[in-house]
Every structure is written in structure tokens, then in C-alpha cells.
């Protein structure tokens, strides 16, 4: 072995020279790694948002110049439209149903699968989660078939369980159709929430719960005071995903009911699609999009305040 190799440093202020070269390399690298992602984000997210704020002040059909400035008229038109208010109300109902039914159901099943000493847990988990990989188009079409008003799967099943049950037009009944759509959404997505809860529950240190048991806590107290608080972060995450998912629901509705009958399943995105894109009132559609943005943003900021503080340590 020869002498330890060393680099001959340049004489004048060696440190800063090296640091500068280092910094330059680092800047190059950052730019290189940043550019593809952030150019796309700029082109297809940031710019469209600002553009649509601009367009929302005009009456514009996508052709011709953008010169018919109407101020806030598109916004007041949207809020004056009974159908739009109805669609917001439907989104709200779906959000509430998601939080009160879908998530607790997912939690119950997660507890059952992780703690229930059941056999074939992996199989059940796979079956419950499977619809997640289906497209919403397929989901909608399958359920369109299952819910058909004649001898569909749903009617036949109910007739087998409930004597005297009469065939239902599930998607034709304005009082029934929104809950039915919610049911289909739950069918497709509750497995995701269940999976997240299962991961959370598995990662609780069993010692904590055993200690509480020794102190005389019963199972219900254990669940309320130990298990659920310990996966609070997961619960908040699923609430966020659930609410955001409820705001963006579109394809299932388009496939199954197109927002009908008589707007009974119209939600904000189907409304935006119908008035903005099908009728090509892009200015008005942009205003509806901005309202949607504001709702999403309003909700997310609240969420960020409570949950995401630790996102970048």
C-alpha cells in the first residue's frame, strides 16, 4: 500500500471553490429532477386553475374570442339554478353517508378480520377489496345489470329473503336512486378504507392493549379509548379520501343514471359536465369548476390544519 491518496486542493480559498462546484452540480440535479414533474403540474394543474378563474368572468363557448365579459353573472346564475343547488346537496348527502356508513362499515370489517380470529382472512380481504381494481365503467355496468327492474340479481335476492317483495325499479325511483348509487360506491371503495384500517390496527403494539386489559378495561372501552385513538391518523386519512372521493363522483353516475331521473342523482361534476362540456358553455362551466375548487380547497385547508402538519418534517 502506498501513501494515502489525497487531492491537491487549489491554493486560493479552496473550500469555497469546492462548495461552489458542488452547489452548481446540486442545482443542476435539482433542476433536472424537478423540470419534468413541475412543468406538467404547471401546464395541466396550475395554469388551468388560473385560466378557469379568468374564463369564469366571460360568456364563452370555446370558439371565437373571449370578449363577452359578464363579471360575476356566471356565478350568480349557478347559485340561482335549482339543479345546481340540488347537485351540491346530493354531494353533501354522499359525504355524510360515506362518513356515517361506509367508514364505520370498513372499520367493523377491519376489526373483524384482524382481531376476529376468523379463518380465510386473506381470502375475505381479497374479495372485499377486489372491486377497487375494476373501472368505474365496469362497476356501473355490472350494477346496471344487477339492479335491472325485471328479474335482476337484486330483485331476485330480495324476493328470496323477504316474502311478498315486489320487483323494484331501483334506478327509476327518485327516493331510492341516490342511496342506491351510494351503495354502489361503497361496494367499490369500502375495501380501500378497510385495508388502510387493517394496516393501522396491525401496527398497534399489543402490549398497550394488554396493559389496559390488565387494568380491567372491557372490550368496548378498549376500542374507544385505546384502539381507535391509536389509529386516529389513519381515520383522518380515510375521512379525507372519503370526502374527496364523494366530491368527485362522476363516472358511476354517468353510466348508471346520467344524473336522472329528474336530476335525482345530479352531482356537481355531472352538472359541470352537462352544462359546461356537453352544451359547451365553457365560461359558465369554468365558474362551476371554480366553485368546486373552492369547496375542495376550503375542506383541504381545514384538513391540513388538523392532519397534515407532519407532512414534511
Amino acid at each position: 500500500m502506498s501513501a494515502i491518496p489525497y487531492r491537491v486542493l487549489p491554493k486560493n480559498n479552496p473550500k469555497s471553490f469546492e462548495k461552489k462546484a458542488d452547489d452548481r452540480n446540486k442545482m443542476m440535479l435539482i433542476a433536472l429532477f424537478f423540470l419534468p414533474g413541475f412543468s406538467l403540474l404547471f401546464l395541466f394543474l396550475v395554469m388551468p386553475i388560473f385560466q378557469s378563474i379568468f374564463y369564469s368572468f366571460f360568456r364563452w363557448n370555446g370558439l371565437g374570442p373571449v370578449d363577452n365579459f359578464v363579471g360575476l353573472e356566471n356565478y350568480s346564475r349557478a347559485f340561482a339554478d335549482k339543479v345546481f343547488r340540488k347537485s351540491m346537496w346530493h354531494n353533501f348527502q354522499v359525504v355524510i353517508l360515506t362518513l356515517l356508513i361506509e367508514l364505520p362499515l370498513a372499520m367493523a370489517l377491519a376489526l373483524l378480520l384482524v382481531r376476529g380470529n376468523l379463518r380465510f382472512v386473506r381470502l375475505f380481504r381479497a374479495i372485499f377489496f377486489l372491486p377497487y381494481v375494476f373501472s368505474e365503467v365496469i362497476t356501473g355496468l355490472i350494477w346496471l345489470f344487477v339492479l335491472n327492474p325485471g328479474e335482476g340479481f337484486a330483485n331476485v335476492l330480495f324476493k328470496a329473503i323477504i316474502p311478498g317483495f315486489e320487483n323494484q325499479a331501483w334506478l327509476g325511483n327518485i327516493d331510492l336512486v341516490l342511496p342506491v348509487i351510494f351503495f354502489v360506491m361503497t361496494w367499490k371503495y369500502f375495501g380501500l378504507h378497510m385495508l388502510l384500517y387493517m394496516a393501522g390496527i396491525q401496527n398497534i403494539n399489543p402490549d398497550v392493549e394488554n396493559a389496559a386489559r390488565l387494568d380491567g378495561a372491557n372490550e368496548w372501552q378498549l376500542l374507544r379509548r385505546i384502539t381507535l385513538p391509536m389509529i386516529a391518523d389513519t381515520i383522518k386519512l380515510t375521512m379525507f379520501l372519503g370526502v374527496l372521493g364523494s366530491l368527485q363522483v362522476f363516472v358511476i353516475i354517468l353510466v348508471m343514471t346520467k344524473g336522472g331521473p329528474v336530476y335525482a342523482t345530479e352531482v356537481m361534476v355531472t352538472y359541470m359536465y352537462r352544462v359546461g362540456l356537453q352544451r359547451f358553455s365553457l365560461g359558465f362551466g369554468a365558474a362551476v369548476s371554480v366553485i368546486l375548487f373552492i369547496i375542495a380547497l376550503f375542506f383541504s385547508i381545514g384538513y391540513q390544519r388538523t392532519v397534515m402538519q407532519t407532512s414534511l418534517e
Partner: peptide
């Protein structure tokens, strides 16, 4: 770093179907 990360997070707050009309206009322009 924080600012860039927050811009990135913006994308998580607006799912594609919520932003579809603005994206459509941009695709038309491009």
C-alpha cells in the same frame, strides 16, 4: 423546499374529475 412541496400537494387536493373542465380548455389551447 416547503413551497414546492405545497404546490405538489395542490395536485392531491384537486382530483382529475374536479379539474376536468379547466384541463379540457388547456388541452384545447395546446
Amino acid at each position: 423546499r416547503e413551497i414546492w412541496f405545497n404546490i405538489l400537494m395542490l395536485g392531491m387536493l384537486f382530483p382529475l374529475s374536479v379539474a376536468i373542465l379547466p384541463v379540457f380548455i388547456q388541452l384545447m389551447n395546446l
